[in-house]
Nucleic acid binder design. Sequence first.
DNA 1: CGGTCCGTTGAGAGTGATCAACGTTAGTGG
DNA 2: CCACTAACGTTGATCACTCTCAACGGACCG
Lengths: 244, 244
Amino acid sequence: MQPPFHRLEEFVGLTPSDINLVRGWAANPRRVARHQPIRREGDPVNGVFFLLAGWAASSVILRDGQRQVIKVHLPGDMLGFPSLVLSSAGETLEAITDVSLCPIPNAAIGRLIEHNPRLTAALLLNTQKERVALMQALTWIGSASALARMAAFLLDLHDRLDSAGLVIDGTFDFPLTQQFIGDLLGLTAVHVNRTLKRLDATGYVDRKKGQITILDFEGLRSVSPNLPPEPAGRAAWSRIGGKA
Amino acid sequence: MQPPFHRLEEFVGLTPSDINLVRGWAANPRRVARHQPIRREGDPVNGVFFLLAGWAASSVILRDGQRQVIKVHLPGDMLGFPSLVLSSAGETLEAITDVSLCPIPNAAIGRLIEHNPRLTAALLLNTQKERVALMQALTWIGSASALARMAAFLLDLHDRLDSAGLVIDGTFDFPLTQQFIGDLLGLTAVHVNRTLKRLDATGYVDRKKGQITILDFEGLRSVSPNLPPEPAGRAAWSRIGGKA
DNA sequence: CGGTCCGTTGAGAGTGATCAACGTTAGTGG
DNA sequence: CCACTAACGTTGATCACTCTCAACGGACCG
């Protein structure tokens, strides 16, 4: 199977040798069954993970038992990067669906920085995009209503799935429980249910089992707290002096 | 004045030539008066900023006018990095106090990645630490009470100021309005006032004009939603194969 | 001295949480 | 293939944390 390059290639064009390097990573994927942990908070940090297929989640547990889901990861994402600066993993990574991913050991990251400026730039810029996504999430959760958060989440998810080629006609798989969405958006499962029902009743979305269809993008955007920032694409690379 | 190296050197030991390079950046600092913008959302992205002295903030505005403060920046921080992947700045940077900072143009970042793996690693790891901080903030705002958020914020601020050498005996400057804290923690200014008063009345903190003293660290930690993750320090660099 | 910003305090309202119950779906084992 | 069970989704009633609106005092600045 062709690894999902769309995230790595978003800002930097990869050379054939870069592509081969990544393909080398993806040669022996590790499979994890849905609902199984990939790496737990507190585990040793042996490297990062490149998600090849399936959905994953990263989350943090608070002392009172509350869980905050940080992000839903889709194919093409790099997982576990932030924990590189911690003495043990700072987030739990788990499979939402069956997933296929390849571990990238610490030493490989060091070699990359040392010898491959182009892929390093791709990683560095990708990380900045993750920061932008976190800033967005923080903004939604910090200052938008439940309805607005949900709308923003669904639109964002749609766009990310679309980039990965996983949307057909506004319809996409949706393997998330309402409890999970609650932990992601800072709401209770009960309120998630009411909010989704409201979006459904208004005609913005349609819910089937395990799938969602966005019926009215404009409507969703109108209740969304903001418009997503426009990515720079390859211009980001050329701006900092990169050669095509 | 000696530039604040403590952030850049946290994970990677810098060589004398690295240090000189950074000193070169800091040779001609730009000064910005308090409450003045450094760069506005939507402005062109000409580079990033290295904060030499003073406090700054990054924030995002929502369509309904709500402001979410993303982070309070202290001396030694790099500002505006996430916007590198956007077609225009995705966050507003502004001076909280009078500020001294040096602009690092885009091209300098590209040259760094190309020619200086050590400083590149320092930047990459620093960015991961920023992601961890964002994850923390998201967790607090998503699933902790006003009191817990405030406690966590004060403890975190104390620790960061301490790293920069700006704390004396638990006391530090505190130039933030309650409105600002509200925008940071996802609360209203009124509720910030009540929450701070509660922490004060309980004896956890003492407020003087423009300053705060933390009187009872254990007490604050006990109401805080979690303990901060432990940074790996230089081990992060050696783990990925970096030479001392 | 007057104006503006900031902090403080009170009263009332509302969004979302909590508690609880029930129906439905999916997974498991006989 | 069916019975059993646990997980998930749905709905109602009530509660409370935080917001909203409003007013006032003090500090700083022109």
